[in-house]
Amino acid sequence: MNNSRVKSNIAWTVAGILAVFWFMITAIPFLFMVINSFKGQFEMLQKGVFDLPDSWFPTNFIGVLENGFLSYFFNSVILLAICLTILLFITACASYPLSRMKFKLRGPTYALIVACMSIPIHVTLIPIFKMSTVIRTYDSIFALIGPYVAFAIPISCYILTTFMTSIPASLEESAEINGCGKFRTFFHIILPLSKPGLSTLAIYNGVAIWNEFAFANTLTQSRKAQTLPLAISAFKGEHSMNIPVIMSVLVLTVLPMIILFIILQEKLVRGLMAGAVKG
């Protein structure tokens, strides 16, 4: 007993050291981004990127906010909300039969989803651009909803199907014995139990959509429709970029995602699911 406690203490110490090491590896680049966002371009280049700024006055941030940052920001927020809502709902719908029903075309459907994950996105730019001009969504954030949802579907279905499979079959069976149809079972049993999976999807796809550049750049043109990743290129010149200004754009871009993560990560904690089953 004593021996195992010593062992366990050693294990925790080693784990702790490694954890702190990893903490540094993840935190330091982020800190560099923040530090450099407070500098001037010449200051940064002359003194080196690893030095502290001369002043912590947020000059770059003020400039960025005064230059229409908020319009990019709101476009991104609206787009994110719409896309995540649609995406999570239809993915949950699709993953339910894929994980918990037996039907003939399940295998091929699953293979199709894997195949759809394999497509390089750059080849879809031209067809999707054409589509957006035909249905007249070009140069609005609505042009982005289709491709964002579509390209998030395969990976999301894949992940969520894995999650739903691990939900004990007994729960579903008892619901069916009680006379629940497939639809009621889905909404009342499966969907609540999939919260950790859905949170993972929200986090992953949220970040991907928030940072997506290729489609946003192709399908929008004027500022009224542009999202945050395009703010970076709007602050970039032909031959040069003011790196500290871009870093400050990036810091402002990252903050909302950190908050979203802090909110959603609670759902990933063990025990919530058990609570849901009991409740």
Binding site: L125, I126, F129, K130, T133, N217, T218, Q221, S222, S233, A234, K236, G237, E238, H239
Partner: peptide, 21 residues
């Protein structure tokens, strides 16, 4: 008048030319 960032300008021009725009 539209300003497009240099890095992706050529890509955007090809896409719009290719689509008759």
């Amino acid at each position: 008048n539209t300003h497009i960032q240099n890095d992706t300008y050529k890509q955007k021009l090809i896409i719009s030319m290719s689509s008759g725009q």
